[in-house]
Design a protein around this nucleic acid. Structure first.
Length: 221
DNA sequence: AATGGAGGCAACCGCACAGCG
DNA sequence: ACGCTGTGCGGTTGCCTCCAT
């Protein structure tokens, strides 16, 4: 075909050790970012996206490989309950783990485990009810101790708080709307299961709020 | 030994969004 | 305002290995 631009044919499939080495050396020399340049200048016949993904998921320093610890599994399950399939957010709470790894682990291991546990949970529900009623009281007390406050901006009323307040309510949060601008908006979760691992930053991030944007502090700690 | 199914995981794809000219 | 480019994200695909038959 005359005059038609020939797109470079990129290599696909698994990365070879020598390709890893080239990418690693290139990034170490030129720094992270501008993956198009990496793709064009490194000599690798890989797309920018492929280079970026390989670096991010496998070659980047401090990547933790291997088995998930029980703590990590537990954290993934709890965070997934709160955040859903927001793998990058979940991975952000697991040092050294990537979103792709967390996602794969969830799909292959935890998804089944959670479904199984839910069935088991339903079977034994009546048996446990008595035990729960006594335990939940103390847990709820604990949760109330971890109430988070966010100060609203000057001139920002109920309507200006954004849809995330509604989302908080849907996600089992009790939200205390401030009556005056500049007052603190408070919210705490009434679901016992994930509260012990939840920190303020996680759900601020979950609802699209940067910690820098809003003054937030934990009360009653 | 051959084969077929299931599970695990690396990599790709498509879309969305931000930044910039 | 618009288009282009780079990057990030979640869903999906496809290859490889293991194991049962």
């Amino acid at each position: 075909m005359q005059g038609k631009e020939v797109k470079p044919r990129f290599k696909k499939g698994f990365w070879k050790p020598e390709e890893d080495l080239i990418l690693k050396k290139y990034v170490q020399t030129h720094g992270e970012g501008n993956w198009t340049a990496v793709s064009n200048k490194s000599g690798l016949l890989r797309s920018a996206k492929s280079c970026r993904l390989r670096w991010k998921n496998y070659l980047r320093p401090n990547i933790k490989r291997g088995m998930m610890s029980e703590d990590e599994k537990d954290l993934i399950i709890r965070l997934h309950k709160l955040l859903g399939n927001r793998w990058s957010l979940i991975a952000g709470r697991l040092p050294g783990r990537t979103d792709n790894e967390v996602k794969n682990y969830w799909n292959t291991h935890l998804n089944k485990r959670v479904s199984r546990d839910q069935i088991t949970h339903l079977d034994s529900q009546s048996e446990k009810n008595q035990q729960l009623s006594s335990d939940s009281h103390s847990l709820k007390e604990k949760n109330l101790e971890k109430t988070t406050a966010v100060r609203t901006e000057e001139g920002q009323g109920d309507a200006g708080l954004g849809s995330w307040v509604e989302e908080l309510k849907i996600s089992n949060y009790d939200v205390g709307i401030p009556s005056l601008p500049g007052e603190y908006l408070t919210f705490f979760n009434t679901d016992d299961t994930f509260m012990p691992i939840l920190d303020n930053l996680v759900f601020l991030e979950a609802f699209g709020i940067s910690g820098d944007e809003l003054l937030q502090e934990t009360l009653f700690m």
